[in-house]
């Protein structure tokens, strides 16, 4: 069974159709979602992660329809995401940012009122997650003071804290220098090797082509191609709509 099934998803913003009958499945893979600006990639992420209810169509995650669920409900099912523009909880420390993710799957319960978030077991989990994304040294740093490369890692750490089965990364390499992008790619590969499935939106073609097993290309809200990176790089429609001739 596919992990994520997207079936005939369309979405309108007023008179503008952002997604047109988008259909694809994801499996055990790192899937890339590419396309020119305004293609509908982030809108699709918003639909999958519960920030937008699609005008029509259906999204299923492990067989369960999720397209009408709120974002926090999709998180509890094991679907986590990051954002194109990093959104740290700026005045919290790195550790506290991760603790927010760790604490929340217990909602909604009245226990939240007296349950402490800084417990030994939570702090142990934070330590493991920070080690995984190589942020251990910045544990006590205020998130607002981190450079962009570390903030991207923090976003991933916070998403990992929710114990996801599928991770959606929205332009994870944006703003990173080549060295940082390579380190991030290694991290994504590690996460995949540990059993996490990943969908990522990316404009950095080298990053996406080297990392992804399969790529779906969106243009003007519809899928124009899908296949492995080699097929995509040689696809005429994709070259005309997005990659261009080199």
């Amino acid at each position: 069974m596919s992990q994520l099934e997207i079936r005939s998803v369309s979405h309108w913003f007023g008179g503008l159709q952002a997604l047109k009958d988008v259909t694809f499945d994801t499996h055990d893979e790192i899937l890339g979602l590419i396309g020119p600006n305004g293609a509908g990639k982030t809108t699709l992420f918003n639909v999958i992660s519960g920030f937008i209810v699609p005008t029509s169509g259906e999204v299923r995650f492990n067989g369960k329809a999720i397209h009408r669920l709120r974002a926090d409900q999709t998180v509890r099912l094991g679907l986590a995401r990051t954002f194109q523009i990093v959104k740290p909880f700026a005045s919290l420390t790195v550790e506290e940012n991760v603790l927010v993710g760790l604490g929340m799957p217990y909602y909604p319960t009245s226990a939240a009122l007296y349950q402490r978030y800084r417990t030994r077991s939570n702090l142990d989990q934070v330590e493991q997650i920070l080690a995984k994304v190589h942020l251990t040294d910045y544990r006590s740093a205020q998130a607002a003071k981190l450079p962009i490369g570390l903030l991207r890692r923090l976003e991933i750490a916070r998403a990992l804290a929710t114990h996801p089965k599928l991770l959606l990364l929205d332009e994870p390499a944006a703003g990173l220098v080549a060295q940082e992008a390579e380190e991030l790619a290694a991290l994504v590969r590690d996460l995949y090797a540990q059993g996490l499935h990943i969908i990522l939106i990316e404009h950095n073609m080298r990053f996406a082509m080297n990392l992804c097993h399969r790529i779906v290309v969106l243009a003007q809200g519809e899928i124009i191609a899908q296949g492995n990176p080699t097929e995509i790089q040689n696809n005429e429609k994709v070259i005309n709509a997005y990659l261009g001739q080199e």
């Binding site: 709120r70 926090d72 995401r81 959104k87 909880f89 603790l99 927010v100 604490g103 929340m104």
Partner: peptide, 19 residues
């Protein structure tokens, strides 16, 4: 902690599971 998170960014708080 959920209030602190929501006060900084409601969308992000929601994205890490805050109801």
């Amino acid at each position: 902690l959920s209030w602190q998170a929501a006060s900084m960014d409601r969308d992000m708080a929601s994205a890490v599971g805050v109801n």
